[in-house]
Each structure stands twice: as structure tokens, then as C-alpha cells.
Amino acid sequence: MLKIQNLHVKLEDEDKPILKGVDLTVEPGRVHAIMGPNGSGKSTLSYVLSGRGGYEVTAGSATLDGADLLAMEPEDRAAAGLFLAFQYPVEIPGVGNMTFLRTALNAQRKARGEEEVSAGDFLKLVREKAKTLKIDAEMLKRPVNVGFSGGEKKRNEILQMAVLEPAMCILDETDSGLDVDAMRLVADGVNALRAPDRGFLVITHYQRLLDHIRPDVVHIMAQGRIVRTGGPELALEVEKNGYGDILAETA
């Protein structure tokens, strides 16, 4: 599904390499987790995959179901099924949450040659998804993420994911800043989306999220590379001993 090979990335304006040869493949139906120290390049990887500017790919490739992601505009990557839940969701004053989400959904459908969703059907869809994430109607009426608490912003990301139903979901620290109950809501939201044809890449610092979203594979990223790959036990090891041993081993 998602296939990353030997990906090298540097900052566009600076000769600062950030990703130094990332190899990673997520198969359909599987949940992969990425852990790693601060500044190791996890968010950068998610941004480069989704097409944020400011980075330059100097080598390697990234494909989604065979299509060259790196050659596409961000909106085309979204239409192709890629979704990134941001580590820091963006506030957009003056644009209503509902308008935003409906514009996004219909733009994606249009790009795929599908019918647009009617206003009525859309409302029903969002209400239903919002309810399971305990997002109240008042929040939906507000401008995108404006005045939302940290936890509300993260839940709003998951709501967008639930409505857009992407094939490949990347979650960048969606658990950070969440209280215990919100964490469970988010995890339930993710689990509800698990499907044989959908892949997940979950970036996190904590085992706690992985207790709820059980990953199939865990990767450790350090200094712009995947330095270890293993099963769920790898996350438990990090939780217990930190990164010291792993980094020492690979240095």
C-alpha cells in the first residue's frame, strides 16, 4: 500500500539533511507505529508524504498503491487516499468547520469522478461520526480549530479522517495532549476505521495509545532513519528502557 524506499530529504533553503534513507512498507489492513526521539524526523516524514513545501527530496521514492506520491500535488495525494492527522492542527479563522469538511469531501469525490454528497446526506454523515467522537454540534459550527482545546483539535482530526475515509492514514502524535478518556475516544475512532484495505502509520511517543490501537509492526526512527523494526514488544521495550539501548546498538 504505502511504500517508502531509501527516502532522503533535506530542507529546501538549507543544506540540512533530515531524512537519511528511510525504508518502510505498510501493507493493507495493517497498523504500523513509529516511535523515536524528538527531532528524529517523524513529522518530517509525514509532511513529505503529504506534500508540504519547504522540503527537498534528494533521493528515494514513496508510492501509494504504486502511484508516485512525490510527484503529486497535496490535494491529489488526498484524493488518492492519503490522510495526515497533524501533530499541530491548523486554525483557520473565518472558515466554518462544516464548510471546510464538505468542501474537502466533495473535492476528493470530484477528483475521483464520484458524485458530490448532498447537503442533507453530508450533515447526517458528520453528525453520526461526531457523536461517536463526542464532538458537539456547537464545535462543528465554529471556524476550523479556532478556540478548540488541544484535545478538541485532535478529535477534530479524527473526525475529518472518519468522514473522508482515506485508504492510508498517518497519525502524527494524535495522542499527545489528550486526557485518558479522549485518548480512548480517539483510539476507538481509529479502530472503527480498521479495515482489510486500509493502512495506518501511527506516530507516537507513548505505549498508552498502542494499548488501545494494537500495532502489527513497530519502527524506531532515529536521526532520519528507521533503526529498528519489530513487533508490539518493541514499544514496550522503549516504554521500559527508553531509547538508550537501541540507539547505542545501532550507533
Partner: peptide, 18 residues
Amino acid sequence: ALFYLRSRGVPRSEATAL
């Protein structure tokens, strides 16, 4: 903000208009 909108599938021109 423009990137956020585009990452959700909104084309550049529409995102700019929003």
C-alpha cells in the same frame, strides 16, 4: 493554512478562495 486545506483534498484555487 493553505497546505492544511490542500492536504484534505481541497485544490489550491479553491483553498485560496476559502
